[in-house]
Computed example of a mutant assay.
Amino acid sequence: MRPLLRWIALVALALLALQLFFVARIAAMVVINPESTTFQRSEAWAQIAQGGGLRWRQQWVPYAQISDHLKRAVVAAEDDNFVNHDGVDWDAIEKAWERNARAEAQAASRPTARAPRIRGGSTITQQLAKNLLLSGERNLVRKGQEFVLTLALEQLLPKQRILEIYLNNVEWGAGVFGAEAAARHYFGKSARQLTAPEAARLAVMLPAPKRYEKTPGSAYLAGRTRALLARMGRSELP
C-alpha cells in the first residue's frame, strides 16, 4: 500500500503545484498584461505547421481606449449577465442545454436536415480562463480546471480587468486577435472609433470568427447584427 499512497501523494502535490502556478499567473495579471494566450500560441503553431507562415495581428489597448459600443455589443452577444454573476451563469447554461435538446430533437425527426448548431452557456470569464491557460481539449478534467480558473479570475481580478483582457486577446479572424487589430482589419480605424453598427458586426462574429471573416456580407451576419443593435444598449458595463 505504501507505494500506492506515495504515488497518490505525489499526484496530489503536482495538482496543487499546478493550481498555485495558475493562481500566481492570474494574480500577476492585476498589473501585467498577458503577452499571449495558450489558444493564440496553438493557433500560431498550427499556421506554421501548415506552411503558410505566421500571421499575427494584435495590439494591446487600455480599457478606456476601446469603444463602449464594442464593450456593450460583446457583453450583449456573449454574456449579458456579465457584471452580476460570479463567473458561471447557471441560468444561461440551463437555457443552452434546453435549446440544444430541442435542436437535437428536431434534427432527429428530420434525418435529412442539417446537423444542429450546438450552443454553449460559457460566460466571458469562462472563455477567458479557457483561452488564457488551457488546451483546446474537451473532457471533464479540462472542464473542471476551467471552473477552478474561472473562480480564481473572478476572485483576483475586477470585472473591468477581466473584460479588458478578454477584448485584447479574443480571436476575430485568422491571426487577428484583440479589439484594436479587429477594428483596423475590418474597418481601417482604431477600436476607440468604432460605431455601434461596426461594434455589433464584430460581436456577432465571435462564435466563429474565421468562418464569418470569409463571408462579411452575408445576410445571416447582417440579420444578427441588426438584432444585436436593438438590444446592446441595455447591456451593463463594469
Rank of each mutant, 00 (worst) to 15 (best):
L54W: 11
W56P: 10
A17L: 14
R110T: 04
I162L: 10
T123P: 08
D86V: 08
G223A: 06
L132T: 12
T38Y: 13
L194G: 01
Q65P: 02
L128R: 15
D91L: 07
Q145F: 13
K189N: 01
E43F: 04
L15G: 12
I124T: 08
A17R: 02
L13K: 02
G223V: 08
L70G: 07
Q19M: 02
I165E: 01
N169F: 06
R161E: 13
A101N: 04
N100E: 08
A14F: 13
R201G: 04
A208T: 12
G121D: 07
G175A: 15
Q40P: 09
H185I: 06
A17Q: 11
Q106C: 00
E35I: 09
Q160K: 15
A28I: 02
S235R: 08
D68P: 10
A181L: 06
G136I: 04
L128S: 12
R110G: 00
S218H: 04
Q193M: 01
E146L: 14
Q19R: 05
L132H: 03
Y166G: 01
A182G: 12
G233R: 15
V141I: 15
I26D: 07
P197W: 03
N168R: 05
D68F: 01
Q160F: 00
S190I: 02
A107N: 06
K143I: 11
F187S: 07
A44S: 07
L157Y: 14
R102A: 14
R184A: 10
S218Q: 02
A9M: 00
N139R: 13
G87K: 11
L128Q: 15
N33Y: 07
E43K: 06
L13Q: 08
R6M: 02
V30N: 12
I124K: 14
K95W: 04
L229W: 02
S67Y: 06
P197A: 01
V30W: 08
H185S: 06
L149M: 13
N81I: 05
L151K: 15
R6N: 09
S36D: 10
R99Y: 03
I32Y: 07
M1N: 10
S235D: 00
V30A: 11
A174I: 12
V141Y: 14
T195A: 11
H69F: 00
R117E: 04
K130M: 01
G175P: 14
R114Q: 11
A64Y: 01
R184V: 05
W172M: 15
V176F: 05
G144K: 06
I8F: 13
Y186S: 03
H185P: 03
K71L: 02
Q106L: 11
L5S: 00
T125N: 05
R6I: 01
V74S: 07
E98C: 00
I124H: 03
V204R: 02
A49P: 00
N168K: 13
E154M: 09
N169V: 12
I93L: 11
A183F: 08
R41H: 03
Y166R: 05
A77Q: 14
K210D: 14
S135D: 15
V148C: 07
A107V: 12
A96F: 09
